[in-house]
Amino acid sequence: MTKSELVELIASKQTQLSVKDVELAVKTIIEHMSQALAEGQRIEIRGFGSFSLHHRAARVGRNPKTGESVQLPAKYVPHFKPGKELREQVNESVGQDY
């Protein structure tokens, strides 16, 4: 499912908002989450999961073309930990044919 399919799906299940409104709302939610993570803020959605940042230490990398060493600085990467409900729901689908 893509973002636009998600928008269509949400729009089709309610009557008050247009597809355009839903599109803008979905964009706003995603932008809010990106912004939070960019500021080092965790996101906690009960039943779904949590997003946080994981630290990656500085390391010496290599340019695969030239073989030259490059110093790569420490950085943060986004991490998602699925919540219990999501884990269970997803695992229940094993062996079912969709």
Binding site: L6, I10, F48, V90, S93
Partner: peptide
């Protein structure tokens, strides 16, 4: 938003 994502994932 989160409900539909979860439903899609639980339908593989």
């Amino acid at each position: 938003f989160f409900g539909e994502i979860r439903d899609a994932l639980s339908h593989n």
